[in-house]
Write a protein that binds this DNA or RNA. Sequence first.
DNA 1: GTCACTGCAAATAATTTGCAAAGCA
DNA 2: TGCTTTGCAAATTATTTGCAGTGAC
Lengths: 147, 147
Amino acid sequence: MKPSPPIDIEQRLANLTEACRATGMRVTHQRLEIFREVAKTSEHPDADTIFQRVRKRLPTVSHDTVYRTLASLEEMGLISRVDPARGGARYDANCDKHHHFVCTECGAITDIYLQYEPPLPEGIENLGDVESLHLQVRGICQNCKTN
Amino acid sequence: MKPSPPIDIEQRLANLTEACRATGMRVTHQRLEIFREVAKTSEHPDADTIFQRVRKRLPTVSHDTVYRTLASLEEMGLISRVDPARGGARYDANCDKHHHFVCTECGAITDIYLQYEPPLPEGIENLGDVESLHLQVRGICQNCKTN
DNA sequence: GTCACTGCAAATAATTTGCAAAGCA
DNA sequence: TGCTTTGCAAATTATTTGCAGTGAC
C-alpha cells in the first residue's frame, strides 16, 4: 500500500474552473463552495454533511442545489461517488487511482493506494465494455476496534 | 474468469432450515418464500422485485416483512447485499466467493468468478480488521451496448 | 404456552422534480 | 440578453419502526 499523496486544493479549484469553461457550465458561487467542501477533505462526506458545511458560508443554499451540483461535478469527472454498504452516497474529489476501506461500524471511508492495480479479469469483455474497477475492503477501523 | 457454478436450490433451502435451527429462528412460510425467490435466481433482485414475486404466492405479504426478512437472512449469512452505484440494495444468495460486474446503464449485475482472488493490500492491517473484500467492475453490458 | 414473526399504518431518510426568479457569460 | 442555475416547495423512492395479533416449536 502506497502512502496517500497530499491534497492540493488550489489545483483542484483550478480544475473546476477549467472544466466549467470546457463544458460551458457556469462557475457559480454555490458550485464553487460545494466543490471546495469536497475538495478540501479526504473524509468522503455525504450530501447532507456537505450541505451543513456549505450553509455556514452560504446560509440560503438549498438541499437540492447540493444534490444537483454534486451530480454535475460527478458528470464533469471532478468528483466521484462512493457507495458504502449502508447510508447515503459519499463524495470524493480524489481523482488519483485508488480504492477504499469502509468501516462497517462507523462508516468511515479511507483511501487505499495499491502498489499494483488489480488486473481486469480475463474474459470480462464478454460481459461488456469496462468503465472502471473498484476494490472495496470492508472491516472494523482502528478507531472502532479500540472503542 | 472461471465459469459460474450451477444453482442448487435444494441445497440452499436446506441451508436455510439448518441455519434457522442453529440460531433459534423460525422457518415461517414467508421466510421460506422470500428466501426461495432470492435463492432461485442469479439476477440479484432488489427488495421490491422480491416483494412483487413473493406476493404472487402469498398475497398478504407486506413490504416491511420482505425488508425485515432480507435483513435476517443477511445476518444469518445466507444472502448478501450488493450495493450498486444507483438504486436500492440488491440481494444475492450466492455464497461462493465471487465479485460483480455492474451495468451503469440498466443496472444489471453479473457474477464474476476470478481465477485468482485479489490479495489484501499489504499494510491494510494498519487501517483495521478486514472482514471482506469486494471487487466491482462497472461498465456497459452487452445488452445495452447493442440496443 | 411462549416468544419470535407478521401485517398494518405511519414515520423517516435520501433524493428528485416543476417552476418562476436570479445570475453568469 | 440568453440560457444556465438557484431556491422553494412538494413529490418520490427506499427503508424503518411501534404495536397488537398470529403462528412456529
